[in-house]
Amino acid sequence: MDNLSVFLQILFWGLYAGCIYILLATGLNLIFGVMKVVNFAHGEFLMIGAYITATVFFLTGFNPYVILLLSMVALVGIGAVVERLCFRPILGTGKLNEIFLSIGLIYIFQNGAAMIWGDAWQSVKSPYDGITIPIGSLSVPLDYIIIMVVTAVILSGLYLFLKKTTLGMQMRATSQNRKGAMLVGINVERIDIISFGLGCALAAAAGTLWVVSGQVFNPYMGSIPAVKAFAIIILGGLGSIPGAIIGGLLMGLAENGAAFLLGGIWKDAVSFIILIVVLIFRPTGLFGGKEG
């Protein structure tokens, strides 16, 4: 293998890692846009999504890409409950409260999952395991192509939903001007619940894709990706979905590049170094507006 194909291959893994980050970050951004809250425990929904997919897969043996939908639907429900019980009561009580509340949620979800499913690491085998497709000088396993396609489909679906449906337009209206939306008769609390659920569903999709790509998972898997997803949306600018996509790709590439050039230990640190450097020069992120 020559240097160029090594480079291309690493670029490809960066792209794949980016897909998972994009899904997580878009979900966070959706919630932030509408409710103006940040859930640091978002990664726990990724973990729950992964476990739901895995559990159904172990029980029925269905194609995990089909279970993805089920897992997303389940997480809409769980997300709605969490929103109603935890975030609704503290809306508007100060931004630090959400961060503290998320810490409580992290404790509950991680250890709750450990109580239900055990804390051992597990893995799921994809049905397309072992099929590879040659692209140029690379040979790429089919699973990664599917993962990228699924990510693209979910994101375009979300785009169409926000642009074309009434509900989507109501969500955008709420995110642009909450009071205005209330005035024209939109039930903003309902919109809150729906967007929180949708955001969680995106996290579940990310979790499922994580599982099928042959990575192991355990109850503690979610916290670091979630914080990184949050770093991504800050990088891209809070509330900006294109920002989240570019930020996610950037982060996926930077991490894999750092693991290659500096050693694997730098994988987490490099994301935050980029974040800090960007924030020094642009306190609202790369694509952020004036709102901080």
Binding site: M1, V6, W13, G14, Q215, N256
Partner: peptide, 20 residues
């Protein structure tokens, strides 16, 4: 000689470098 952080689950980049 490639390293990774504890609890890592994605080794593809390091493995690509090793394969080279």
């Amino acid at each position: 000689q490639q390293s990774f952080k504890m609890g890592e689950s994605d080794f593809r980049t390091q493995l690509t470098a090793i394969k080279a």
